[in-house]
Write a protein that binds this DNA or RNA. Sequence first.
DNA 1: GTGGTCTAGACCACG
DNA 2: GTGGTCTAGACCACC
Lengths: 125, 125, 125, 125
Amino acid sequence: MIVIDYQDRTPIYEQIVERVQRLVIKGVLAPDTQLPSVRNLAMELSINPNTIQKAYAILEQQGFIYPIKGRGNFIAPNPDGGLKKKQQEFYEKLKDTVAYAIDLKIEQEDFVAQVQKYYEEAMHD
Amino acid sequence: MIVIDYQDRTPIYEQIVERVQRLVIKGVLAPDTQLPSVRNLAMELSINPNTIQKAYAILEQQGFIYPIKGRGNFIAPNPDGGLKKKQQEFYEKLKDTVAYAIDLKIEQEDFVAQVQKYYEEAMHD
Amino acid sequence: MIVIDYQDRTPIYEQIVERVQRLVIKGVLAPDTQLPSVRNLAMELSINPNTIQKAYAILEQQGFIYPIKGRGNFIAPNPDGGLKKKQQEFYEKLKDTVAYAIDLKIEQEDFVAQVQKYYEEAMHD
Amino acid sequence: MIVIDYQDRTPIYEQIVERVQRLVIKGVLAPDTQLPSVRNLAMELSINPNTIQKAYAILEQQGFIYPIKGRGNFIAPNPDGGLKKKQQEFYEKLKDTVAYAIDLKIEQEDFVAQVQKYYEEAMHD
DNA sequence: GTGGTCTAGACCACG
DNA sequence: GTGGTCTAGACCACC
């Protein structure tokens, strides 16, 4: 369920955070689903438990999960609050992406065409 | 010409590298133009010369600039080699961007519309 | 494993880079092997850690090694990509070598004979 | 007659030294031929006169040229003394070249074939 | 513990 | 004056 890319330069705990966020937003992880325990996940990924702990702490602080003492961590009921916020953030980043594309002398038509191609590729999966 | 954002978490030397890369690609810096000397730029940005040195070393290694000892650093004659490479890299990243957009349940139409909007905004500048 | 010649005029960091490159190409260092830590190697060679850092940074940028923060540097899985590139570079340099030999009035036969002699010497080790 | 490559990392004065050495060894520059004056050559190459001065000083110290006060610098009568020495140096370097080739897993046959090819190419010029 | 970034200050070769 | 290398020592993020 959770995969890590060691070649990737982004910190492991951040990879875990993003991974869980995406799974929640996509609806793969339903509310109140139990997450793997810190120690189990650490074993499975052969990673330091501290790293998992840090990821879970961030997820909790962002309202994506909630802990029950002695039981474990669970997906929080997420009334789309996270989604819209993430979408806004995304559009902000997209602005920079377009600006960069223009610097690279990429035409609007080429850009849009490529986006549509990628959308279709993704839909066929 | 070269500005640094100290708030930004990305390393200073990397900011300088990207800044120069963009200026070269956009054609603002013509081939054989002399860059500010390591010491001068360091003074101007109130930064340690070593940091500038590091940035220049990377730019040299990437073929964007070439040094002449005792004279200074100069923009390399760049036969668009850099540009096409950068464009390919860009399209690779765009793929991830689209995948992320799909996860965020952003429709293709909305995505494209936003891109076109940003393009037009940029053109009016 | 890694030795430095202080008499040599070539920079220390470059000596280290070449040394590791050769060990990788020769297959002495298998993929995912851990390199000595920056600080350890610095101690061992009684050199400043920054110098090691510089060498490792170059090796990373060339795709010979990859770092995992908080863990160390490791040999990259190198699908012979490095080897062929190095061979091409070598043949380029060889061209200059031959041109120089001709200037020195060295006959083709003598040149070839000497090469064969050196090859055989190396094989007997 | 004398050309300089600014892209080349080797110092300019060294380039000049090597250039003259080769021309002498190849016999292009006969003994007692007058070299361009320091100032003239500096102008021609748009280079600092000190650099030329340094190159001439080295050439004189190596016995390739001799100065006559108030007249200029001239090619020394070179009874092949330089040539044999250079050839020996060359064979020394060749040893390292072969060692490196072996590290790169280049077969003896390929090496020799390439050398012969380069020799023939050079002869057809 | 690890790698990564940065500063301060020195020395050298080159022009 | 220029770039290039190196040292010493500090701080940070990550594991």
